[in-house]
Amino acid sequence: MSTDVNVKLDALPGLDSNALPLEVKDLHVEFRTRNGIARAVNGVSFSLRAGETRAILGESGCGKSVTAQAIMGILDSPPGFVTGGEIRYRGVDLLKLREEQRRKVRANRVAMIFQDALSALNPVFTVGFQLGELFRKHRGMSRADSKARAVELLDLVKIPAAKQRVNEYPHQFSGGMRQRVMIAMALALDPEVLIADEPTTALDVTVQAQIMSLLAELQQERNMGLLLITHDMGVVADVADQISVMYAGRVIEEAPVRDIYESPSHPYTKGLLESIPRLDLKGQELSAIKGLPPLLTDIPKGCAFNPRCRYAKDACRQDPVPPLHRVAPARSSACHFWKEVQADV
């Protein structure tokens, strides 16, 4: 078994502690499948500061998880390939690192939690063993010390009777508790960035509320950057500072949370917000976005949203794709007609 205690993080080429903890630039990912090339991520850029929460919002299949997998270096490859762009951790382009260096960053600096905790935990080892292994492997700690740290961590994520439960197996925990265990594992080595891919989607609202408040608390304590992937606009409104809205593998709008909800600058964002049931619309038709998202093997020419867009004009049906451009300080939209959209209430 290899141990990577010896890979030194401060020896990473180009490491700059003043650079942002995470910066993604023009990321491209494609899946080469029998049915053609699925362009899952088509030039995604965003950055994440220490202590900041950025939400990646978008509907099923728009490329949120693939973006996260590319950042973590856990893309299913083949068929998935990163075909362009940069993913920088404190200035270091992770895409240029050797696999062992990458693994080290992944364990120590940039961690991830998944929607389905059960499949992320190993069913044949106790929770304590799995947590302890992180300390044994990455910190070279003794068995006894790492077990003690495992108990501390379970305590940190508020698992009652941590001392006893550390010896139990994942299936002996409820869904919410397993999610806590996964958070504990992700936070074990004090990462600077946490990527949470739909961390509460499978849970009941009361448990979701517990987990989200736990995450917020831990993030603040540690001044960690949180990349929150979700399609729940309630959760986003509750916890995010910045939002990137994705559609068909692109970021189509980016803004601070309040601005997005107050005056969306892209028809897709506007459509999403309008389709949430609201009290004042009781008894009326909900405003749905017509049609379906495109197949990623066959993304429409021009603006990918044009077949569903009520603002679409001829320019939208032709290349070039409208780029994500600045529409106000700290705000960007990838719509030719964002002014019209913003003005339309």
Partner: peptide
């Protein structure tokens, strides 16, 4: 427990 889709709240 239901998050409100309005950051002002």
């Amino acid at each position: 427990a239901v998050p409100v889709p309005d950051p002002k709240l």
